[in-house]
Design a binder for these strands. Structure first.
Length: 511
RNA sequence: GGCCCAUUCGUCUAUCGGUUAGGACGCAAGAUUUUCAUUCUUGAAAGAGCAGUUCGAUUCUGCUAUGGGCUACCA
């Protein structure tokens, strides 16, 4: 096993990459990095019907945002270029023909419409139509037609596909790194199309095997939805004579909907209010949009951390992992077998953990764009300080504005509930007294102000809650916010006094 | 319908034949507190069912049930 580890992430550009795809990419990346291997990005655009412009760029940008680095592939190049399957068309036909020649595949001349009709008829009879050893001799194929006739049909320009000649009765034994030994009898499988007539491109199965072989892929780590076609893939490796270098397979459990059944899909996010995609997406064809984790205020580290733990665990009680810690801890052996239900609440919790651990400086650069959106221009240091004071109660960077707006904008209106509760009785007079105490303080630091004002409250025998909440009404305008001395030290003496004066002058106490 | 995969608290999971079945999210209660959070403590909460193997099964085997995937000239 001195062979170099080479894995690939091979999405198809039919739309935005969804979080399940990101997780597959992540596991491939972690596996590659933890084995000193290479991570390859291959774009599987063999479905010309479903191709969506912009999807490839979206995939690359998503991986970049997540910190999943590509060593080789689309956008980077490498020894096995090109890495976009549509640019490798001539390769596949050659290999498909090789299979026909060797007797592992055959031409079939029936059209998609004819097959649809046959399936429908079979269904009406309560049967299921399978294109396999039971029918292939009766269909117009190179198996039933004479060589001359086959030649003639092809030369005439008739449509043809190449199908795999599935053995009639053979047990295929396979090994999966996650699921263990799996056996399937070929009698339950059908003659899959390997090469399509509609766009003169291979299907996934052919392109996949050929490219994995040519690109010297050592491990195929992909979603569980591919497990049913693993026997076909095994057989293809054998048909090509590539069994010795066949990669090892690992089929990942699926990401499931938070409630109910089924795999996670785009609709779930729309319905339940969480993103299913890493980045915001607007379809260039339909104009449809979908929210993204990035735009919803998630940190890529938190998103990746959350995704890594959905279907894998380190076997310890550690939950917070940086990418390099993940690389150190990851192993396919610890990937679970059953589908993992995605939990929006847990995703939020992960993000909050990262939020609480961010430095003021890091938060400042993320918070500044939001401040500017609200017309607030302050130095990074000030933005960072505001964020730092309030980060403990934020889950997302996007929570910060609501949490800190009063730091930057003096209240002009006051929350009714707080006014009713505190802007009455002795409190206005007491606020005037506090104002004088504050006015006498030179060092407005949190500690100093706290020490002096608290001592004064104690000396006077006033109620802490009454004084503080009245002061809060003046400075914040509502019953929220951090400790009052956080507010006074942030605002500074001048602004603090100004806000108190404004309240005193403009709001009539309630009776 | 057929084939394949799976099955521990509501959810993500630990356990690799012997444990008071552990942790986390969420939930509840309490503590702290000048508001709101944070934080801390505590609590409720699980081996799908039935056989078998075994001195002993959550763990191994079989069946059933349930969930999921696949069943296209889509990946």
């Amino acid at each position: 096993m001195s062979q170099q580890v080479r894995v690939r992430f091979a999405p198809s550009p039919t739309g935005p990459l969804h979080m399940g795809g990101v997780r597959t990419a992540l596991y491939n990346y972690l596996f590659a990095r933890s084995h000193g291997g290479r991570m390859i990005l291959r774009i599987e655009d063999t479905d010309s019907q479903r191709f969506v412009p912009g999807a490839e760029e979206y995939i690359i940008e998503s991986l970049r945002w997540c910190g999943i680095e590509i060593d080789e592939g689309v956008g980077i190049g490498g020894p096995h270029a090109p890495y976009r399957q549509s640019e490798r068309r001539e390769i596949y036909l050659k290999y498909a023909l090789q299979l026909v020649e060797a007797g592992w595949a055959y031409y079939a001349f029936d059209t998609a419409a004819e097959l649809d009709a046959m399936r429908k008829q079979a269904e009406e009879r309560g049967e299921t139509f399978a294109y396999n050893y039971t029918v292939r001799e009766k269909m117009p194929t190179s198996l039933s037609l004479s060589e001359a006739e086959v030649r003639e049909r092809i030369d005439r320009g008739d449509q043809w596909v190449i199908r795999f000649k599935m053995p009639a009765d053979e047990t295929v034994e396979m090994d999966d790194l996650i699921r263990g030994h799996v056996k399937v009898n070929t009698s339950t499988l059908d003659d899959k199309v390997l090469y399509k007539s509609v766009d003169a491109l291979p299907t996934y199965h052919l392109a996949n095997i050929v490219d994995d072989h040519l690109m010297e892929i050592s491990h195929v780590i992909r979603g569980e939805e591919w497990l049913p076609s693993l026997p076909l893939h095994y057989l293809l490796y054998r048909a090509f004579g590539w069994e010795q270098s066949r990669p090892q397979f690992a089929h990942l459990p699926l990401l499931l909907k938070p409630t109910g059944g089924g795999k996670l899909s785009k609709r779930d996010g729309d319905k339940m209010g969480f993103p299913v995609f890493p980045l915001f997406w607007r379809s260039p064809v339909t104009g449809e949009t979908a929210r993204g984790y990035r735009e919803d205020g998630y940190f890529p580290e938190a998103f990746v951390n959350m995704l890594a733990l959905l279907g894998w665990n380190p076997g310890t009680e550690q939950e917070l992992f940086s990418m390099s810690e993940l690389i150190g801890a990851f192993s396919l052996e610890r990937v679970s077998k059953s589908g993992a239900r995605f939990q929006p609440d847990k995703a939020k919790w992960f993000n909050a953990q990262y939020m609480h651990r961010k430095s003021d400086a890091e938060l400042a650069s993320l918070f500044q764009p939001i401040l500017r959106e609200h017309g607030v221009e302050v130095p990074d240091e000030v933005a960072g300080r505001a964020a730092g004071i309030m980060k403990a109660r934020a889950s997302f960077i996007t929570d910060l504005w609501d949490l800190t707006s009063y730091f930057f904008i003096a209240p002009r209106e006051y929350e009714e509930k707080q006014v009713k509760k505190y802007w009455k009785g002795d409190n206005p007079a007491r606020l005037a007294e506090v104002r004088e105490v504050l006015a006498s303080i030179d060092d407005f630091s949190l500690e100093n102000t706290e020490r002096i004002v608290n001592a004064w409250i104690a000396e006077k025998g006033y109620g802490m809650g009454q004084i503080m909440n009245t002061l809060r009404l003046a400075l914040v305008g509502a019953g929220k916010g951090p400790g009052m001395y956080d507010v006074t030290s942030f605002l500074g003496k001048e602004e603090t006094l100004r806000r108190i004066d404004y309240l005193l002058a403009n709001l009539k106490p309630v009776e």
